[in-house]
Simulated assay, not measured.
Amino acid sequence: MTDAVSQDGAGDGSGTLRSGFVTFVGRPNVGKSTLTNALVGEKIAITSEKPQTTRRAIRGILNRPAGQLVIVDTPGIHKPRTLLGERLNHLVDQVLGDVDVIAFCVPATEKVGPGDRRIAESLDGYRRARKVALVTKTDASSREQIAERLMEVDSLREDWAAVIPISAESGEGLEILADELLGLMPKGPALYGADVVTDESTEDRIAEIIREAALQGVRDELPHSIAVTIADILPREDSDLIDVYADLVVERDSQKAIIIGHRGSRLADVGARARAQIEPLMKSRVYLHLHVRVAKEWQRDPKQLGRLGF
């Protein structure tokens, strides 16, 4: 690894490296997962226009000559309506207590609201972490909107280490953000190997890809009710095909009918979209076996949540 000079002494020319953890926080659907993928340079977190798409703490690794950033993508902070929602908020709280930097995200396209203020104030509870504010989605905003949002965000706290406008879609500001975050990390060696982009298992990544495909085009109430589990992954002995067996879990029979669609048309579409992403991940042709099953009110049932990994 070569030395590089970045802000706040990230590389001082004497072999000193920095590494640590950063997480992005904000209301649901402010672009945290898209930003994680853009920084890592590879899709490790699924994205959707549906709120609360992220359900786990997913780590993406960004390697630089001056050190390593471990980006922890978390669910959006929200007012929980189910036991699942409560557990997701608890997960976010755990992550915020452990990371070195918290980056608070507000989209440039929307005025700062009560939810943003509440989240910004809640960061007082995590004194260990440095705080950075990000105005996201600048590619979809006017200069006036961006300037207005920067002033609104800057006024939310007095201890921002930086306030940065960025666009995960266009890449604007991402290099500045990476340098700034790395400069705020503690000195220390890399935590993961240079070739690692995530510590997610293959099974978990496949399950998330299938869930992302299932989320496209469904009604607003359905996304929260969809979970995906991988039953088995089996290479075929007589060909280069890999069989992937997955269950799509919903809460009601009516939801099962929506997922399957007329004569299975919608489920076939979900399978085709998912397979297009799974095959590059597996570096092989894949035959995807999708089964839809009902687990009544699983979001509110502790035993069902445990079986589904929550």
Score class of each variant (00 low, 15 high):
residue 230 I to N: 09
residue 130 R to H: 12
residue 283 K to A: 14
residue 191 L to K: 08
residue 272 A to E: 10
residue 41 G to Q: 10
residue 216 Q to H: 12
residue 8 D to W: 13
residue 307 R to W: 13
residue 206 I to M: 07
residue 128 R to W: 10
residue 91 L to R: 05
residue 134 L to Y: 07
residue 26 G to Q: 11
residue 121 E to P: 01
residue 165 P to T: 06
residue 182 L to S: 09
residue 212 E to L: 03
residue 289 H to R: 08
residue 116 D to V: 02
residue 82 T to A: 07
residue 105 C to L: 15
residue 242 I to F: 10
residue 291 H to E: 12
residue 250 V to Q: 05
residue 223 P to T: 00
residue 30 V to M: 10
residue 131 K to I: 09
residue 146 I to V: 15
residue 192 Y to D: 01
residue 103 A to C: 07
residue 253 D to Y: 00
residue 257 A to L: 11
residue 272 A to L: 00
residue 93 D to N: 10
residue 116 D to N: 08
residue 32 K to T: 00
residue 92 V to S: 07
residue 14 S to F: 15
residue 71 I to A: 07
residue 121 E to R: 13
residue 211 R to T: 04
residue 19 S to Y: 05
residue 209 I to H: 04
residue 290 L to C: 11
residue 26 G to H: 12
residue 226 I to V: 14
residue 26 G to E: 12
residue 76 G to H: 12
residue 275 R to L: 08
residue 38 A to V: 01
residue 299 Q to V: 08
residue 94 Q to H: 11
residue 159 D to K: 08
residue 243 D to T: 02
residue 55 R to H: 05
residue 219 R to S: 13
residue 178 A to F: 01
residue 259 I to W: 02
residue 169 E to S: 10
residue 194 A to V: 02
residue 251 E to S: 06
residue 214 A to M: 03
residue 266 R to G: 04
residue 184 L to W: 10
residue 167 S to I: 12
residue 129 A to W: 02
residue 216 Q to A: 11
residue 169 E to A: 13
residue 179 D to R: 13
residue 201 S to D: 04
residue 143 R to W: 00
residue 75 P to G: 13
residue 62 L to C: 05
residue 222 L to Q: 04
residue 259 I to V: 15
residue 117 R to D: 10
residue 155 S to G: 11
residue 215 L to W: 13
residue 280 P to C: 12
residue 188 G to A: 13
residue 235 P to S: 00
residue 204 D to Y: 01
residue 225 S to D: 15
residue 212 E to F: 06
residue 276 A to S: 14
residue 245 Y to S: 09
residue 137 K to C: 11
